[in-house]
């Protein structure tokens, strides 16, 4: 058991260094002198140029630069944004709750609909329900979500006027966004209507971001259920005269959940990639929109730092999934 965890952890370290190396290489790969690229069209005097080159350490050998970067990263120093001059680390964690709130809602949406859909499809295998659900899931899986977002805006914001087009809350509500989680802060503010406004702003982005995970979870649940339903112990349970609903819910679903949980864990990367598009379309002030804006503003320390933090986050989630999987399924540990 310990050996398994240790081996998982050991693969984490080289991957972490590699990910750091890639984000380090990013600024150096840009064509031309990074200082001049950063300055943009404003230009600068040679003295200022030399000063900045020294400040960013570009005059030192590559391995020294990388070592300085790596030690900075480990201490949480990712440099400052060119535009706001604030530390990248602070900006990231100020915006992260917005992305986390949206991703959590999307995940809850996906699991709450995907699990039952998969179970219903598996139990009714080959029948109308199965076909209808799985066709819908395949459409969801193939969906260009940026278009899906626009379509939902046309219908629900444009024609029906049910939901707002962008942002996190109506401007009439004002309260300190202390925790960064709008729903929580809206409840804490005690203003009537604030919570409803926050929820209304969340609905469309949640659906858009949750669509692909929903389809993946439904498909995975169905195939895992089908596999489990063919096992001997299910036949035994049937032979004992147990009710089908109890067999499906207690015996089959619990065993089918293992691969499903893996898929849920591994879709964190999908969610973060989806957040880039979803947040851009709905002007959701999270890290996805922040990254896209920074790329367009050529705010390279932000792009570099954000890339690294997001990758490390995905790695930590994957490691956690691996470890959890090892705890649930002892067979894996032996490999």
């Amino acid at each position: 058991m310990l050996k398994y965890f240790a081996s998982r952890l050991l693969t984490f370290i080289p991957t972490f260094i590699g990910v750091t190396l890639i984000s380090f290489a990013f600024i150096r790969l840009l064509p031309g002198d990074p200082i001049i690229v950063m300055a943009g069209e404003r230009g600068m005097s040679p003295e200022r140029h030399a000063e900045l080159t020294a400040q960013y350490g570009f005059d030192q050998p590559m391995y020294v630069q990388f070592w300085n970067y790596l030690t900075g990263v480990v201490q949480g120093d990712l440099g400052n944004s060119f535009v706001t001059k604030r530390p990248v680390w602070d900006e990231f964690f100020a915006l992260f709750p917005a992305t986390l709130e949206l991703s959590l809602c999307a995940m809850i949406f996906a699991v709450a609909l995907g699990l039952p859909a998969g179970v219903i499809a598996a139990v009714n295998r080959g029948k109308f329900f199965d076909r209808a659900l799985m066709s819908t899931a395949l459409i969801g899986y193939s969906m260009p979500i940026f278009w899906w977002a626009l379509l939902l805006i046309i219908v629900f914001s444009g024609i029906l006027q049910w939901t707002p087009v962008s942002g996190r809350i109506d401007l009439v509500y004002y309260f300190p966004n202390a925790s960064g989680f709008m729903i929580y802060d809206a409840i804490m503010s005690g203003q009537s209507g604030a919570l409803w406004s926050a929820i209304r702003h969340l609905i469309l982005p949640t659906i858009v971001l949750g669509t692909i995970p929903l389809a993946v979870i439904a498909r995975q649940t169905r195939s895992a259920m089908l596999e489990v339903l063919g096992e001997d112990y299910i036949r035994t349970a049937r032979a004992k005269g147990m009710s089908p609903s109890r067999i499906n819910a207690v015996h089959a679903l619990r065993n089918a959940l293992i691969p499903v949980i893996t898929v849920i864990g591994l879709s964190v990367g999908t969610l973060l990639a989806g957040a880039i598009l979803t947040e851009t379309i709905f002007s959701w002030p999270g890290i996805g929109k922040w990254m896209v804006d920074s790329i367009f503003r050529r705010d390279y320390p932000v792009v570099q730092g954000g890339l690294l933090l997001i990758a490390v986050m995905v790695m930590i989630v994957n490691l956690t999934v691996d470890v959890l999987y090892g705890i649930i399924n002892p067979k894996i540990r032996k490999r």
């Binding site: 590699g18 990910v19 973060l272 990639a273 790329i295």
Partner: peptide, 18 residues
């Protein structure tokens, strides 16, 4: 395989974007 793990650690669309 470590190299591939490193590439896979980035969400694909984000890495492509960068």
């Amino acid at each position: 395989m470590r190299l591939m793990d490193i590439i896979l650690a980035f969400p694909s669309l984000l890495l492509a974007l960068v």
